[in-house]
Design a protein around this nucleic acid. Structure first.
Lengths: 219, 219
DNA sequence: GGCCGCAGAATATGATCAAATTATTTCCTG
DNA sequence: CAGGAAATAATTTGATCATATTCTGCGGCC
């Protein structure tokens, strides 16, 4: 039989499935509350059930999916308390990463971030919601990478997984306009090596983003 | 065939395996750097390999085990940078949980914590390393539970999983004596509802604990 | 020292069994 | 006789296992 590994540069199937699902969650292909079945994924992705099960376990462990007790898996629905917790955690961690990034990143790192941010602006300009979500995540992922703190980055990635689907809903309601953007301030701080300013701008960015989710919950 | 579920109150096998492994990691039955093989666990726990695989994926996702790339799994070995990151994350999160616990916990919650802390002291008195690790974790787990913040608690539990094996090594070197104890200050703060004091004492407790791990790395 | 084959371990599949939800039927009641 | 609730049957989904396949690492051989 043809091995799926040919598809994705030698990665094991469970890893491919994991990444595929992760992207689906991060970029809103799955709606909050939507049930996720193993057999459905087996048919949709045309792989065996073992890799699917492993990918799902992993995503559940990261909080990207929730196990409903009666052995049923769904995309998490955030309530106000969850958003508050996520905000607290993000505010506690992401400014720290921005601080470290400002201390460590060289010119080439900042340049790459500028490029990503430009693509982000382009996506906003076109009203491309998925593009916005992708590039926005990419921006933060690259910044976290610059910080050189793998454990903290892992934690933050897990947080993003938790609010990804809800973020998509927000963008579906409000579109990509009216997105106040702290990225420019972050970039300036990074280029001037101003760690405190980077942290401060990141905290604002985080709070603004979570504010939108919180507001969408009410409406 | 006899279903293993009978062993553990209706829990699925992969859940049982997960908890077993988690406790082994948290309480030092596995040493840092030690390789973990699937087949070894299959024989040791007398279960099929599917549940073992799922439990391992989950633990890897939580950072409790590391996937060495060449499809080999080991217990993580912490370096100085990892300890620094873990300290940063714990200091950022656990005092917040203590704060919330102080605001929410009633008399009965504080009493339960007192009881756990008493068992902890008893274990220290006997020089019972495993007992110390178990009760110390229990103390913090109960406190986090009191905070009523499931997401933050999840994150912190994941952090504990990462330094569990190394903590055991520390205790193996230094024994259970000379463990400066902020727990009494935390308990007092909880009982008087002093959130700020609870957070401060927790930060000290965290820093002291991580300091010990950090010191053991050098020696 | 590099290459080839062998052993062992991990990955992936399909089959099988168990559980839960859904649909259906039946029986009771108004 | 009609409507609804409870029980039951059927389908769908999840959990586990046994087995085949692939890959990695090691040791001998050229």
């Amino acid at each position: 039989m043809v091995n799926m590994r040919a598809d994705s540069a030698g990665l094991p199937t469970h890893e491919v499935v994991y990444r595929r699902l992760r992207d689906m969650i991060l970029f809103g292909e799955l709606a909050p509350g939507q049930p996720v079945t193993i057999q459905g994924l087996v048919e949709r992705l045309e792989v065996g059930m073992t890799p699917v099960r492993e990918a799902l376990r992993r995503l559940i462990a990261e909080g990207a999916l929730v196990f409903q007790g009666n052995r049923r898996i769904t995309v998490p629905v955030l309530d106000a308390a969850a958003v508050e917790e996520l905000t607290l955690a993000r505010v506690a961690l992401e400014p720290q990463l921005a601080r470290r990034a400002a201390e460590r990143c060289g010119a080439e790192g900042a340049a790459r971030l500028r490029a990503t941010d430009a693509r982000l602006d382009a996506a906003i300009g076109k009203g491309d919601v998925t593009g916005y979500l992708v590039e926005n995540h990419q921006f933060h992922a690259e910044l976290n990478d610059l910080a050189g703190a793998p454990i903290l980055t892992d934690l933050v990635e897990g947080l993003w997984l938790r609010f990804g689907p809800s973020l998509r809903v927000v963008c579906g309601q409000f579109g990509t306009r009216n997105l106040p953007d702290q990225h420019k301030a972050i970039l300036d701080a990074l280029e001037s090596g101003n760690a405190a300013a980077a942290a401060e701008a990141m905290e604002k960015d985080v709070r603004q983003g979570m504010e939108q989710i919180s507001a969408a919950l009410e409406g």
